[in-house]
Design a binder for these strands. Sequence first.
DNA 1: CTGGGCTGGTAATACGCATTAGCATAGTGC
DNA 2: GCACTATGCTAATGCGTATTACCAGCCCAG
Lengths: 352, 352
Amino acid sequence: MTSPTHEKMTQRRVAELAGVSQATVSLVLNGKADAASRIPEETRNRVLEIIEKTTYVADPAARRLAGMGNKILGVFTYEPAFPNETADFYTPLLTGIEARSEELGCDLLLFTSAPVENGRRQIFHGNNRLGLADGCLLLGLEMDAAELSRLVDNNFPFVAVGRRDVPGVPYVGADYVSGTAELTRAALAAGHERFFYLHVDSAAESVADRQLGFHTELQKAGIESVQLRACTGDDYLADWKAITTADPTVLFIEAPRHALEIYELARQAGVRVPSDLSIVVLGEPSRPSAQAIDFTRLSPPRTELGAEAVTLLRRILSSDDAPSESESRILLDCVVESGTTLAPPRNEGKHL
Amino acid sequence: MTSPTHEKMTQRRVAELAGVSQATVSLVLNGKADAASRIPEETRNRVLEIIEKTTYVADPAARRLAGMGNKILGVFTYEPAFPNETADFYTPLLTGIEARSEELGCDLLLFTSAPVENGRRQIFHGNNRLGLADGCLLLGLEMDAAELSRLVDNNFPFVAVGRRDVPGVPYVGADYVSGTAELTRAALAAGHERFFYLHVDSAAESVADRQLGFHTELQKAGIESVQLRACTGDDYLADWKAITTADPTVLFIEAPRHALEIYELARQAGVRVPSDLSIVVLGEPSRPSAQAIDFTRLSPPRTELGAEAVTLLRRILSSDDAPSESESRILLDCVVESGTTLAPPRNEGKHL
DNA sequence: CTGGGCTGGTAATACGCATTAGCATAGTGC
DNA sequence: GCACTATGCTAATGCGTATTACCAGCCCAG
C-alpha cells in the first residue's frame, strides 16, 4: 500500500522510475500550457502514474526556493492567540481566516515562536520563519509602526486586521468611526446632553476611531463639555466614583468587559439602567457570556474581518488581480445592536 | 532605518559588505563551537554588525532545503478547528499546543487546506505541505487508521492526541478507562444497581475506553443487565423515552451536550436530579456555559493534553532524546469532578 | 540534399544556505 | 632550516525544484 522505501521521494527518483528526466517530471506537474503541451499524453500519463504510485509530493521548501508560492499564509498575533484572556478577541477572527483559507486551499502558519520583548511579540527576530509564507496576516489591538513600515519597505505581502495609520499598510478594519457616530446620534436623538466616555487606555487606531466618531457628532450637536476617562481595569470603583461625580445621563464605554463591571457597580449603587443612566458599549464580547446584558452596542463583524483579510491578501499575492491603493484599505461596517440600555434621560437634575 | 534596497538580503550580500565569504557568514551564524571557534572575534563582530545593520534573516526555505530542521510543527485537525461546533473541542487543545510551542520556539502550521472527502479531511492529498513541518500533531475524535499506518510506514514524525489502537502510533491521550471506572465505582458505592448508559455513536477509541471502564467495573460488581443506547443527538425525546422505560437509578452519559439536553427533559418531566435519578457525565464542555449544571463528571485535561503532545513530538524529533516505545504512548489522568448529580438511589420500585 | 520547422524531450542553471575539505600563512619544536 | 601544527579563512558541493536554452531526430518543401 505504501512505499516501503524510506528514501525521500524526489522528482529525480520519479524521473528514474518513469525513464525520463527530472525536468520532464517538473513540466508534467507545473508546466504552463504552452511548455507542457510539448509533452505527449503518453509520457505524461506514465509520469503521473508513477507519482500516484509513489505518493510523491513536491517539497514546499524547494518550491519556495525556486521562487514559487506555496499557498501558505502566515498569521502573526501580537499576543498569544489561544489563552483565555485573548481568545475572545482572536477566535472569531481565526474562524473567518480559517474558513476562507480552506476555500482557497491555503495552509496557515502561526508564528507562535515570536519572542516576547518588552511586553509584545516581535515580528522580526533571528530565524523568523516569515519567508516561508507567501504572505502574512497581522492581528492585534496595537501594532508596532516601525515593524509595519519595515514590512512595507521590504515589499513583503501582508494585510493588517484593523485600520492602521501607517502609510502603505493594507488592512481590513471595522468602521468604528461611523458606528460610534451612529450610536452617538442615537443618544443625542434620545435627548441626552450630559455624556461620559470611559475609554481604553491604548493608542490603538480602533480606539482613536471611536473617539473621533463620538467627538465629531457631539461637536455637530454643539455639546462642549464631555468627561473622558481612561479605564485601566485596575480600579473600577474609582471609575464609578468619577462617573457619579460627573453625573452624566449617558455613559459610553469602549470595552465590553469594563461595561459589565460598571453595570454591576451601578446595580449595587441602586442606579437603574437605563432609566437612571443609559449605557452604550462600543464593542461586543465574542461569546455571549452567562450573565449577558443586552447592551446598546456596536458589533464589529469579526469573523467577516478575518475572512476578508484573507481575500485581500490573496489578491495582493495574485499578480493578475492586484488591488489598487484604495482597494487595499477596506473598512467593514459595524452592526449597531439597539439593545436595552439606551433610553431618554430623566428630566430632573441630579441623577446618580 | 531599514535598508532602502529592495534586493533581497542574502548571506552572499552580507559577505560582500563584510569583506568575507558566504561560508564565513554561515559559520558565524550557525557554526558548531569547534568550527566556529576558528573565526576570530574581530571578524565575527564585523559580520554580526552587518547582519544587524541590514536586518538580514536567513531564508527558512533555503535552511530547510539545506537539511536544517525549521522548528515548524504541523497541526492537522480532522474537522475545521475554529467553527463554533468544534471550537469547544479544539480550543483548549490548541491553547496547550500554542503555549508549549512558544516555549520551544516552534511555529505551528495548520493544515487547513486538507480537502474534505466523504465527510472527513484527508491528510494525504496532492501538494500537501506535510513536508514543511518537522513533525505533525493530529487532532480529532476519530482518525483514519489507514492514514495513520501510512504515516508510521513513512517514518514521518507525528503524535496523535487521544489514544489510538493503530500499532506504532505515538499518542498522548486521556485515561478514560480509569476515569470512567472510578465514577462507576462511585455509583456502585452509592448503592446503584440499575444503570443506563447513553453513548456517542462513534467508533473512536476514547468512546470505547469509557465503555470498557464502565463494563469492567459492573462485571466486577456482578451486575449483568445494563441498557446501552447510542445517542445521535437527533431525537432526545426518543432517548428520554427509552430511559424512562428502562427505569434506571443512575444514568451515564458520554457527551456533555447530550447530558444537558437529557437533564432538561428530566426537569420538564418532573424528575429531580439526583434524588429521583443520578446523572454521571463522562466528559466536560471546555467552556462553562450559561446554564452550567455541576454534573458529577469526568474532566479530561485538554490543555495539558495539547502541551504534552507537543513535548512528546519534540522528543521524537530530537535525535538525542528519543522516547522508548512505551514512552511514546502516554495517558494522562482525567480529573473526577464530584459535582452534585450523583446521590444514593431511592429505595422504592419505579422511579421515573 | 539542404534548409527550416516541428516534436519530444534533456542539460544546465539558479534559488539561499550549511557543510566539508582544503589552502595559505604564521608560529613552534627540534 | 625543516617538518608540523594551529589559525583563519574560502571553494566547492548538495539540498529539490522550476525554468530556460538547447539539441537530436524527423518530416517536408524547395
